[in-house]
Design a protein around this nucleic acid. Structure first.
Length: 852
DNA sequence: ACCTAAGGCGCG
DNA sequence: AAAGCGCGCCTTAGGT
């Protein structure tokens, strides 16, 4: 401890918070030189081990650790109890006294508690890497060394924050200077901008928008900015005000876009950060053919899927520039000049980030091939898919919604029979109670926040429901959630498997289960209705950088893309229930067929291929079904009497064991999903039998473990990389997780890349052959299309042949030596009972339509 | 009137 | 010896 500081600040008799009861040293103040300009604030006084870790990291970014003053948000350290928010608040006075005394210029805040003590704000993930200005000093928060220790995967991002901190402290200016921005605010300048765009070699572009989605009422493009290289190789940054109230083009912004449209679209290299968003908006508002050749967000993800992929974190860590941006609730109320400056800076930094990433990709040819052949083409196809959306049967939606709500109501009516009578308000004299007609539930639960008001009846998994089931109706608590922070028991579980068990004790759980089923339908239907546009289509946003394996994810646009309060539109097309009652709402509009092309058992085929599993490969080469084989050999069902249900169970067994499931979890899932009871002995035997059936699987698991321990990463056959820094975690469970991820990732990645590649190729062939068909999207191992009826005979074999014979050898040098099989379904609706099979529509041998 | 975390479940 | 993987959305609890 620094004695001078301790003398002035420390209070050894402090008992203001609970921490002092357990601490061996009370009110331990900081340590370091009196004249330090850098103060480092942790959660509790540091142990030597963490001090070492911090010293090393600070050294790595060029900060001399011995010149820093080290202190903590909580001055009493104890392993017995964890400080809460109030403790942090109480203790903060000592920290602020230390700041008064040392007068640092810079404060590095490690972790949420330090952030809270220093600023009063919580949310370290939100505030990390920002500069928070205070009178006389600046605070930069980042993650705590303890969390880095637990989770080494975060180390890269953490070091980037530290590097940024060092850059601020030593005023190291970035090599990237700030651009001169040409503001285009007259018709004449717009003309000149158009001349500059003509023949330009490269353009990095970005727009600011207003509205929940490009297609909603009142949506507009607020401004457009760009950094370009013109035909004479001059770098030029501009900002064009559009729909902003302070813009000269506020009423004619679409016309202004029209002026530059042709020249902008003709630029051969178009660069943006998450450009799918911008391209979609521009398309919608008149720039119908805007391209995208290099997306820095997608490149960032390919280069390191674990790092933050946003423009700001990429900019500050790659370029060493100050964080930039505007903090605003409403872009339209922000002065136009600020909007333009920010908008332009985005494009300028995007350009510089692009230069770096381009080189990094060139240095890693496999990644470059993925980027060029899959990532960017896929992104361009999805711009159209997202813009088009998927057709929804509006009438069917209305009918089914009505049914679902009615069914919920019906179940709730059934529950009436067991409803307790709520207690009356205090001092209420009830005649029915006195006469014994009311048996009031006196222990009716009260709301935590409504100052003791009685809770409303709520059949969802709520406090009220739990009271009703487990207190009032006296059902047994079979399972609880995890313990709360204060150590008390978790809430009684109301999950499906538990409710299924409870059916044997009472009639209520069965009704509740039925209600839940319909309630869920209602949720989906409400969301769909909410997202229906005026063409009866709903839209989704596919994220190409949303998963660590390279799969696409689907849902709403990221809220960060917008300023202020928004309710982004979009539904997740990848989690539409398979129930035809829901899936059958989606389909193709008049004169089109809805087509779904599925890779059959693609993940298992990829497992067979990557693991070189001889028996699996043989089964596929001889046209057999692995799930069926597993059902008969592992579950002991004769192969000729395997039912659909057996096969379903076998499927779960296959995926579970292939990806490293143990017998323990097997018992659990078998029971919870299929109500099959296995003893420990039986479960062990099943697992053993499984791996005897496929003897090359365990050696492959071992190989993946070796690889990830050695290289800290694994690769898919075409070279997509999953970095797994957690493999070095001191925590065994975390290491185990990384090992299983090393097994799963190449499989999931490769299967997903096959789907994306097929989507890209089919879209291309549709255009080349003039087929009126569009890609609607992908669902991991399936692609969805809508195809004009007259073109479907031509399209179906094309889809099937393309998917079954992907040019993986030509593009990536990978030869698949087992058959890939694609199933195609065609119909008016997706997943409908009336759906036609491909063979009914198209005779593959004859090449003619036979039905439909 | 907001925000976050956890539980639970939809999909592959 | 023990260990499925990958997502997004909705709801509630509990906090400011």
């Amino acid at each position: 401890m620094n004695r001078k500081v301790a003398m002035a600040v420390r209070d050894e008799s402090c008992s203001d918070c609970k921490m002092c009861q357990y601490a061996s040293v009370i009110c331990q103040t900081g340590n370091g030189p009196d004249n330090a300009t850098i103060m480092v604030v942790g959660k509790v006084p540091n142990s030597d081990k963490y001090q070492e870790l911090v010293d090393e990291a600070l050294g790595e970014v060029g900060i001399d650790s011995s010149l820093c003053f080290y202190t903590a948000a909580i001055k009493c350290r104890s392993w017995e109890t964890e400080p809460g928010k109030t403790d942090v608040k109480t203790c903060a006075k000592y920290l602020h006294a230390e700041i008064e005394l040392i007068k640092p210029k810079w404060i590095l805040a490690f972790g949420n508690e330090a952030l809270q003590a220093l600023t009063g704000n919580s949310g370290i993930m939100k505030y990390r890497g920002r500069v928070i200005e205070r009178e006389g000093y600046s605070i930069i928060p980042t993650l705590s060394p303890a969390s880095i220790q637990r989770n080494p995967g975060q180390r890269q991002g953490w070091l980037a924050d530290l590097r940024f901190f060092a850059a601020q402290v030593y005023d190291r200016t970035s090599t990237v200077s700030k651009p001169k921005v040409a503001v285009i605010d007259t018709a004449d300048q717009l003309k000149r901008l158009n001349q500059r765009l003509k023949g330009a070699k490269l353009l990095s572009y970005d727009i600011e928008t207003f509205g929940d989605a490009e297609y909603v009422q009142g949506a507009r493009i607020v401004s457009l900015a760009g950094t370009l290289i013109d035909k004479d190789d001059r770098l030029f940054t501009f900002a064009l005000p559009l729909g902003h109230p302070g813009s000269p083009f506020r009423t004619s912004w679409r016309k202004a876009l029209k002026v530059i449209q042709k020249n902008m679209e003709a630029i051969p290299k178009l660069i943006a950060h998450n450009g799918k968003f911008d391209a979609r908006w521009l398309r919608y508002h008149g720039m119908s053919n805007i391209g995208l050749t290099f997306d820095t967000m997608l490149a960032a993800h390919l280069l390191d899927e674990n790092r933050q992929k946003g423009l700001k974190p990429q900019g500050t860590s790659r370029l060493g520039v100050e964080p930039w941006g505007i903090d605003t609730k409403n872009l339209l109320l922000t002065p136009i000049n600020e909007v333009l400056k920010y908008n332009a800076l985005d494009t300028y930094y995007t350009y510089h980030i692009y230069l770096q990433m381009r080189q990094e990709l060139i240095d890693q040819p496999k990644l470059l091939r993925i980027f060029q052949n899959i990532t960017m083409p896929s992104c361009r196809v999805l711009i159209k898919s997202e813009a088009d959306g998927v057709w929804v049967d509006r009438e069917r939606l209305a009918t089914n919604t009505k049914i679902a709500f009615e069914m919920v109501a019906e179940q709730e009516r059934k529950l009436d029979k067991w409803m307790p009578v709520p207690p009356h308000p205090d001092n209420h004299h009830c005649i029915l109670c006195k006469s014994g007609e009311h048996i009031v539930a006196e222990d009716w639960p009260r709301m935590a926040k409504g100052r003791g008001k009685h809770a409303d009846i709520n059949f969802n998994p709520s406090t009220w429901s739990r009271w009703w089931l487990f207190d009032h109706l006296q059902l047994p608590v079979l399972e609880r959630g995890k313990d709360k922070e204060d150590g008390s028991d978790g809430l009684p579980s109301m999950k499906e498997a538990v409710m299924m068990e409870l059916k044997q004790f009472h009639e209520v759980p069965a009704v509740m289960l039925e209600r839940t089923r319909w309630k869920m339908m209602c949720q989906y239907f409400t969301s769909y209705a909410d997202n229906l546009d005026d063409r009866d289509h709903i839209h989704t946003t596919f994220k190409l950088a949303g998963t660590v394996t390279g799969r696409l994810s689907s849902g709403k646009e990221d809220e960060e893309k917008f300023s202020g309060r928004v309710d982004p539109k979009g539904v997740n097309i990848q989690q539409v229930p398979r129930d035809p009652f829901v899936r059958g709402l989606f389909g193709a509009p008049e004169d089109y067929w809805f087509v779904e092309a599925d890779f059959s058992q693609i993940e298992l085929r990829v497992v067979a291929f990557i693991a070189r599993e001889r028996r699996m490969m043989h089964l596929y080469q001889t046209g057999q079904d692995i799930h069926l084989a597993t059902a008969s050999s592992v579950l002991g069902v004769p192969s000729n009497s395997v039912t659909k249900d057996d096969r379903k169970k076998a499927k779960a067994v296959n995926f579970g064991f292939v990806y490293g499931m143990g017998w323990n979890k097997f018992i659990l899932t078998a029971f919870e999903k299929y109500e099959m009871v296995f003893t420990e002995q039986e479960a062990r035997a099943v697992r053993k039998a499984y791996f005897e059936q496929f003897p090359d699987l365990l050696p492959w698991h071992a190989r993946q473990r070796r690889l990830v321990h050695r290289y800290k990463r694994v690769q898919s056959p075409i070279g997509r990389i999953r970095r797994l820094p957690d493999i070095d975690s001191p925590d065994k469970a975390v290491r185990g997780e990384a090992e299983r991820q090393a097994i799963n990732s190449p499989i999931q990645s490769f299967a997903s890349d096959m789907t994306q590649l097929s989507m890209v190729m089919i879209d291309k062939k549709f255009r080349e052959m003039g087929i009126d068909g569009n890609v609607i999207g992908t669902v991991h191992d399936a692609s969805l299309f809508q195809i004009k009826k007259k073109d479907v005979a031509q399209a179906l074999p094309l889809i099937k042949n393309t998917m079954e014979n992907l040019p993986l050898d030509r593009l990536f040098g990978v030869q698949i030596d087992l058959p890939i099989v694609v199933d195609i379904k065609v119909g008016k609706h997706w997943g409908d009972a009336t759906e036609l099979s491909a063979d009914q529509v198209y005779d593959w041998d004859e090449g003619i339509l036979t039905n439909g």
